[in-house]
Design a protein around this nucleic acid. Sequence first.
DNA 1: CAGAATCGTGAGTTACATCA
DNA 2: CTGATGTAACTCACGATTCT
Length: 211
Amino acid sequence: MYYKKTCFVLLNDFICTFYSQYCLVDDMIFMILIGESSTRTRRRRKKSKGGEGNGMKKRKLSEEQVNLLENSFSNEHKLESERKDKLALELGLDPQQVAVWFQNRRARWKNKKLEEEYSKLKASHEGAIVDKCRLEAEVLKLKEQLSEAEKEIQKLSERCDELLISSPNSSYSIDTDPHFHGSFVVEGFENLCVPEYNYGHGMDWVNLYNL
DNA sequence: CAGAATCGTGAGTTACATCA
DNA sequence: CTGATGTAACTCACGATTCT
């Protein structure tokens, strides 16, 4: 049986090759599809006028048939030979039709699954973008706060300089005042630890905490 | 073991039916 | 009537299994 089918396919291949070479294209014969995108050649099915010709007229499966097929598909996506024959008998269809239906149904199922997966990934991606925006806004806000703090420190530093210049002979000096040894505290920055060696004019230490 | 035949399947395509 | 869409049917390639 398959031998006959193979012979038919081979014969078709021969006919197609022949006609493609000699460009004898007729509505009643197969044509060769020469695709640019594909390396392999495909036979183009001829249009069946009124359901005659090589193939049976395409007919829609009844609701009952589809329901039964769907039921069977939900149980098992693969179709063994026995099940195929049994289903075909039950549905009054050709086993080949059942096989084709399962084949197409698997393709549809796969497409649907891909679409669902894509939707999930898209939603997750959009969520990540929202998070990113929120974090960027937070970073901006923190940078502003830091800038304000720097300005405040700068002001204090300048004030210290002024005090030193205005009273050079005063016994009240940074060197002698124990309050200026070690770290000092700026209002609102109690937890900020300033290194002892660098509380002069420079703001370099601040950069240590810069983002 | 090699090669041919057979079978099942995925991927891609075509043609037809249906609907807005 | 027409274009879009869904789907049955088809083609091809390929891997696995069976046969010779």
